[in-house]
């Protein structure tokens, strides 16, 4: 009896919970629908569009970078800034300095936080000429704004931050991962009072696989007035993906395979030379 009574109580509690969940679900659906309507209305009023023409780059054995074009439409007369970035992360770099006043060697490590591995910026004019310092900082547009955004440690003073951020940018530019460029965006006026923009850029083969964000900013009177986004996905495929995955996930097998191939190649070539040469 007791057990049957207990079962009935549990069933009633379950029903109550179901009703509660249904109410919550209904409320959530209404809120979501409202948000979608608001969002749609926002998009409908926006003129700025952005599309990367090559948004899925695949890396196979013969990959040597790619070409990516970004195009869209904006209101006429607006300046534009296009930023391509990888997700932010932290990077550890070796720091060179003088030892005993004469010898250059690694003297420590520097941690760079909130740093994208890739940062490319294209604009119709120099960003500092079309955007206020505040706006640059708000949207992290330009090296000066990025320097403010990035955290470097350990540092003794603010001057060191400027110095080491400068060195970091030099390092990244040498690896083709950081770039700022202006005046290369092609603009064409359309009959309906809008303008079409287009830029083509070389996608560096040094850019690691991952999701990249293309952000386009329309600028008027020193401020960002509109913003649009597009994505570029870089992905390893086929044997490249298999080998990269094996190196990480089956490290022991990968190690044995590497050694096995090296030993076989060494013996193989030795045998071939013995047969071919015959003199030794």
């Amino acid at each position: 009896m007791k057990r049957r009574h207990g079962d009935a109580v549990t069933r009633r509690q379950g029903e109550k919970e179901m009703q509660k969940k249904a109410k919550c679900g209904f409320t959530a659906t209404i809120v979501l629908a409202f948000m979608m309507l608001v969002g749609y209305a926002g998009n409908a009023s926006a003129m700025l569009t952005a599309k990367a023409n090559h948004d899925h780059i695949t890396i196979d054995f013969f990959y040597h970078g790619s070409t990516v074009g970004v195009k869209g439409i904006s209101d006429a007369g607006r300046d534009l800034v296009i930023k391509i970035t990888s997700p932010e992360g932290h990077q550890v770099m070796k720091q060179k300095g003088k030892v005993a006043g004469v010898l250059w060697m690694n003297v420590g490590t520097l941690k760079f936080e909130n740093t994208p591995n890739m940062y490319e910026l294209f604009s119709t004019k120099k960003v500092e000429d079309i955007l206020t310092a505040e706006e640059q900082k708000k949207h992290t547009l330009g090296y000066a704004a990025l320097a403010d955004h990035v955290e470097i440690s350990p540092l003794a003073n603010a001057a060191e931050k400027t110095q080491w951020f400068g060195e970091f940018v030099k390092f990244k530019e040498a690896s083709n991962l950081y770039k700022t460029d202006f005046g290369r965006i092609e603009m064409k006026d359309l009959a309906d009072g809008h303008q079409e923009y287009f830029i083509q850029t070389q996608w560096p083969y040094q850019a690691a696989p991952g999701e990249y964000l293309v952000s386009v900013y329309a600028v008027k009177d020193g401020k960002v007035v509109e913003q649009a986004e597009s994505h570029v996905k870089v992905e390893q495929i086929g044997m490249v993906k298999t080998l990269a995955g094996m190196a990480k996930d089956s490290a022991a097998l990968y190690g044995f395979l590497s050694i096995g191939v090296a030993l076989s190649a060494g013996f193989g070539v030795g045998m071939v030379f013995r047969k071919g040469g015959g003199s030794h």
């Binding site: 080998l243 190196a247 022991a252 190690g255 590497s258 090296a262 190649a265």
Partner: peptide, 23 residues
């Protein structure tokens, strides 16, 4: 042989394809 295995196992830093080209 020992170094290659340790590097592959602990640091995941052996590039098989580069090694093949070199060898």
């Amino acid at each position: 042989i020992e170094v290659t295995f340790l590097q592959a196992y602990t640091n995941h830093s052996v590039d098989f394809l580069l090694a093949v080209l070199l060898l």
